[in-house]
């Protein structure tokens, strides 16, 4: 789906990585790994287009991303380290903002899947860090976009939520979607590892 060609990232005159070439294909789950400060989040920001200054090329389905931003953005879900959840709004309102096409039962189902049954209309400032992350991740149950980019999705989640999320990700890959995620914890999925820092690509 998305091919990185000779990608490089420079920050404050310091080279974080360079010569990064890898292809995220349909059905893949990629685990981007590496020590702190190696540029994992910077890489995700470049992939998603939050940051547009980079060396090298990004090709979406064979075309330069700069030429097909609309198509690319329509196929992308990005849940960053700060996932864009408004604390003053309820879980339902937050989810509706990102998935306006989903009806009430679909929204409630998505929230219930991650154990947020009964919390739909509670303002998010009453929720814990783990619950907030679940509100953000509930989007995935409703997402029809094929390309998911997740920054540390497992942080602050309990065992049940991790299991539910892993199931969601493998189902997405099985349907021909693609997931790129970072995580400091080991991921219990058939992933391909991309280790930043030594640029090695470790197949599953």
């Amino acid at each position: 789906m998305l091919a990185l060609k000779d990608l490089s990232c420079e920050r404050d005159n310091r080279l974080l990585f360079e010569g990064l070439s890898v292809t995220f294909g349909a059905g893949d789950i990629w685990h981007i790994d590496g020590p702190n400060g190696v540029g994992k989040t910077s890489l995700l920001r470049q992939i998603t287009g939050v940051s547009r200054y980079h060396g090298g090329e990004l090709r979406w389905r064979g075309r330069d991303v700069a030429e097909c931003r609309y198509e690319f953005a329509q196929s992308l879900v990005y849940i960053g380290h700060t996932p864009g959840i408004k604390k003053a709004l309820s879980a339902r309102e937050n989810l509706h903002h990102y998935c306006p096409a989903a009806d009430t039962s679909a929204l409630e189902g998505a929230l219930a899947e991650l154990g947020l049954y009964g919390f739909e209309d509670v303002p998010c400032f009453r929720l814990s860090a783990g619950q907030l992350r679940r509100v953000a991740l509930a989007r995935l149950a409703l997402a029809s976009e094929p390309f998911w980019v997740l920054d540390e999705p497992f942080t602050a989640l309990d065992v049940h939520a991790i299991a539910a999320l892993e199931q969601r990700l493998s189902a997405h890959a099985a349907r021909g979607g693609c997931v790129v995620l970072t995580s400091h914890q080991p991921v219990n999925l058939p992933v391909q590892r991309l280790a930043l820092g030594d640029y090695s690509v470790v197949p599953a």
């Binding site: 998603t48 939050v50 864009g84 604390k87």
Partner: peptide, 16 residues
């Protein structure tokens, strides 16, 4: 400011 802090701004930036 709040969009910047909670990541909503990133979501706006990558919106189609």
């Amino acid at each position: 400011r709040s969009d910047w802090d909670d990541g909503s701004l990133e979501q706006m930036l990558i919106s189609p």
